[in-house]
């Protein structure tokens, strides 16, 4: 059996705000196996970023975790001390953010920033500057960057958006990692550049044999990059399935509704959209959080929270429409 890298069990996260506790994550389950590429698809403010930030424990100070477990390589992240967390962040998992202008420091050159990351990765032999420099050059070459030496001497503002995001990919894969988390890495990029960056990300992650969690709001991006997809709505993983299967047979009403909203390149007109709006996190619906907008809601949906059940190989759905055997 393949090793599990990340295992999130029944995670709850809430934020303290003026209006009270915003109960954002509502029992999230997520597993990522070694070498697996997983994506989390959902709309704005569904808790995608909160989920992955809690893996690295980089949530905002207002956040608290009343319940749940996050196992990284078997050890509970929530119980880790300072030094263990540091080790997790420097050599366990790395994160690529949406906006590379925010994640790269504008006053240091790319080279200085890459060398710093390599230096604190805990590898042996990186005390020497020449070794670090070599590793940085190698990492840039691997992401198909032209003229790595020049790029190492540039400041972030001298590079284009696509180049910066490739630098971030190089940065997160310059040293061995078990997991790369990419939070909407291509949302700010043009479609032709997005294509290039995603291809490089996929290829590098596969070559290094590490796992990937890709956050995106685009089913298309998820389909072309990852093996398995989690569909997230209002702090819950409503459905997960291998990519092919999810597109062949989406089960959860939300997955189906969301997919139908996406305009197709092959035409066919526009769907109606999903009625209503995302429920308020301060006072979420008691039962299934999608129930108020769900076309197939039953009385039970408003009362109880549906648990995730297996309906096929690696295919789970949290909806009362389905029972254990995958029947409807």
């Amino acid at each position: 059996m393949t090793q599990t890298i990340v295992d999130i069990r029944d995670l709850y996260v809430q934020y303290r705000t003026f209006d009270g506790q915003a109960k954002v994550l509502n029992g999230v389950n997520l597993t990522v196996k070694k070498g697996e590429k997983v994506s989390i698809v959902g709309e704005t403010a569904c808790g995608k970023t909160t989920t992955v930030k809690s893996i690295l424990r980089i949530l905002a100070p207002q956040a608290s975790i009343p319940r749940g477990e996050i196992l990284f390589n078997g050890s509970d992240v929530l119980k880790m001390g300072y030094s263990e967390l540091n080790k997790l962040r420097s050599s366990g998992a790395s994160m690529i953010f949406q906006d590379p202008t925010m994640s790269l420091n504008p006053v240091f050159t790319i080279g200085e920033q890459m060398e710093a990351v390599i230096r604190y990765s805990g590898q042996s032999g990186v005390e020497q500057k020449s070794v670090r420099h070599e590793l940085a050059v190698k990492a840039l070459e691997e992401t198909a960057m032209p003229d790595p030496e020049r790029i190492l001497q540039s400041y972030p503002f001298q590079l284009s958006g696509g180049m910066r995001q490739r630098v971030c990919i190089a940065l997160s894969l310059a040293t061995p990692r078990d997991l790369v988390i990419a939070d909407e890495p291509t949302t700010n990029l043009d479609v032709t550049i997005q294509d290039q960056v995603l291809k490089i990300l996929k290829q590098r992650v596969e070559a290094k044999g590490c796992s990937l969690i890709l956050i995106t709001h685009s089913f298309g991006v998820a389909r072309e990059t990852t093996d398995r997809i989690y569909v997230m709505y209002a702090g819950n993983m409503v459905e997960t399935a291998p990519t092919q299967e999810l597109f062949r047979e989406p089960l959860h009403p939300y997955s189906r509704a969301l997919m139908s909203c996406i305009p197709r390149l092959s035409g066919g007109g526009m769907a109606e959209g999903i009625p209503g709006r995302l429920s308020n996190y301060h006072n979420p619906p008691k039962g299934c959080r999608f129930a108020p907008r769900c076309p197939e809601a039953m009385p039970r949906c408003h009362e109880e929270k549906p648990e995730s059940i297996d309906v096929g190989r690696e295919h789970q759905v949290a909806c009362f429409l389905y029972d254990k055997d995958g029947g409807k």
């Binding site: 991006v221 597109f247 390149l265 092959s266």
Partner: peptide
């Protein structure tokens, strides 16, 4: 053509158009 081939899509019908 480059633009069309870069668009991430959801169905095989769409793939065929790229």
């Amino acid at each position: 053509q480059m633009l069309l081939s870069s668009i991430p899509v959801m169905t095989e019908d769409e793939d065929a158009l790229k």
